[in-house]
């Protein structure tokens, strides 16, 4: 774990791998350090934000003395306690392309997507957009060469090793394999998003 400068109100912590980032994210979520206001996990890093510049030195010291335990990790506070089930109609416009890229049948793409437990690694891109990794893999695909100007809310996509559900209509470059009616984002709910970091998910084939 490496501490990188990030202005006078934050420290960017770079972890050796995704497991390290997961452990640090879970630790800070379960038990925030004195002086920190929030943290933002990403692929290999956790951004730790302080209330004031004077909080940074004690925060840096506390981060350096953390002893992290590898998973399993507690779920986000207020998050759903168990695996969230998301029904998906697998009718996305890129299903055939995804199958071709992976060298498998469309049915096998669906079987792999609906046949593993996915975990939210981090959120980003837009409010409530969760990046999920599966425990079995087998669905690594490239992004579309040209992003779509408009992807509808509820679209289920693949990119790299991740799957994700668009919480609102937006431009997007992920390969779309289906859609869900389950709301990813609710302004009046607390937390407003269905999927926060650490949450586990199963996608269910809605037509079976």
């Amino acid at each position: 774990m490496r501490l990188l400068p990030c202005g006078d109100t934050a420290i960017l912590v770079e972890c050796a791998d995704a497991a390290g980032r997961r452990a640090l994210d879970a630790r800070l979520r379960a038990d925030p350090l004195p002086g920190m206001v929030e943290h933002v996990p990403a692929e290999r890093t956790v951004l730790v934000r302080a209330g004031r510049p004077a909080d940074l030195q004690p925060l840096a010291d506390a981060l350096r003395s953390l002893r992290l335990v590898p998973g399993p990790h507690p779920l986000p506070r207020g998050g759903e306690p168990e695996v969230v089930r998301i029904p998906v109609v697998y009718d996305g416009p890129d299903l055939d392309e995804v199958a071709t890229e992976l060298g498998i049948e469309v049915d096998e793409v669906i079987a792999r997507h609906a046949g593993q437990v996915w975990t939210v690694e981090f959120c980003g891109f837009m409010p409530g957009f969760a990046y999920l990794c599966g425990d079995r893999g087998g669905l690594e695909v490239s992004r579309r060469a040209t992003p779509r100007p408009s992807v509808p809310a509820g679209a289920v996509g693949l990119a790299g090793a991740y799957t994700g559900v668009y919480p609102a209509t937006s431009p997007g470059g992920w390969q779309l394999i289906g859609h869900t009616d389950r709301m990813m984002w609710d302004d009046s709910a607390d937390p407003p998003t269905l999927l926060g970091p650490g949450q586990t998910v199963r996608f269910v084939d809605a037509r079976r």
Binding site: D25, R29, E38, H39, V40, P127, G128, F129, P192
Partner: peptide
């Protein structure tokens, strides 16, 4: 909105 950065907000 402080505290929602981890949700992409």
């Amino acid at each position: 909105r402080i505290g929602f950065g981890a949700l992409g907000v």
